[in-house]
């Protein structure tokens, strides 16, 4: 069972996750407008910037985050921004979107000039997240857990970060048990996705480089 404190933590994190999203008009542009390669590049850049701003707003609402050392806050956000972005996009791709929308989004990404060797693992990741049929709580908590990774580069007070991450992990473990009682491996699978995310993050610098070149 979840304690009252744990329930409060979940609703707090889920509220923050739902409240801070990429502005709707920007998302609409992505789906509706015709685009050439240059416009596509600019729009995706704008989206990435907006994503980081939204991510920071979400993170500020994670209980305890603002009490961390300021430079550690920046190190955590810098280290996790790409992973949180992939998680958020995966959530979009696992939703049932109106007919054709997923294809438009996928086309846009495929025509952005990013090389195929990076695109394939990205869509594989989206697919593997989709298969887990995660609830909103799981998405929100997993994102918070990703951000609160004590082993990011330049984090000075790793113990302080661990103290924030551990209760989140415990809550997520319980949520998995409650939401997926017939899948005892569900929690382990979610954590496995975090490993996959690290690989995507690792290749991200190369992705950007290949994008710039093209």
């Amino acid at each position: 069972e979840l304690s009252q404190d744990q329930q409060a933590l979940i609703s707090y994190v889920v509220d923050a996750h739902n409240k801070h999203r990429i502005p709707q008009d920007m998302a609409r542009k992505l789906l509706q407008e015709q685009f050439n390669a240059e416009e596509n590049f600019l729009l995706l850049t704008e989206m990435a910037t907006s994503h980081v701003q939204v991510l920071v707003e979400f993170t500020k609402n994670i209980p305890g985050f603002q009490s961390l050392d300021h430079e550690d806050q920046i190190a955590l956000l810098k280290g996790s921004a790409v992973e949180a972005m992939f998680l958020r996009s995966a959530q979009v791709f696992s939703k049932k979107l109106p007919n054709g929308h997923t294809e438009v989004l996928e086309d846009r990404i495929r025509q952005s000039g990013i090389s195929e060797e990076f695109i394939t693992p990205m869509f594989n990741f989206y697919k593997s997240i989709g298969e887990l049929q995660m609830m909103q709580e799981e998405h929100a908590l997993l994102t918070a857990i990703t951000i609160l990774s004590p082993d990011r580069p330049y984090v000075k007070d790793q113990e302080a970060v661990e103290r924030l991450q551990e209760p989140m992990l415990e809550v997520l473990r319980k949520v998995c048990k409650l939401q997926h009682p017939h899948e005892p491996q569900h929690f382990a699978r979610l954590l496995g996705r975090l490993t996959e995310l690290r690989t995507l993050n690792h290749h991200h610098a190369e992705v950007l480089e290949s994008w710039r070149m093209s």
Binding site: T45, E57, Q73
Partner: peptide, 21 residues
């Protein structure tokens, strides 16, 4: 333009509350 800002700049600005609503 935002595209010329680095990741860290965007994070620092947003943390300070300079985010445009």
């Amino acid at each position: 333009p935002a595209s010329n800002l680095g990741l860290e700049d965007i994070i620092r600005k947003a943390l300070m509350g300079n985010m445009e609503e």
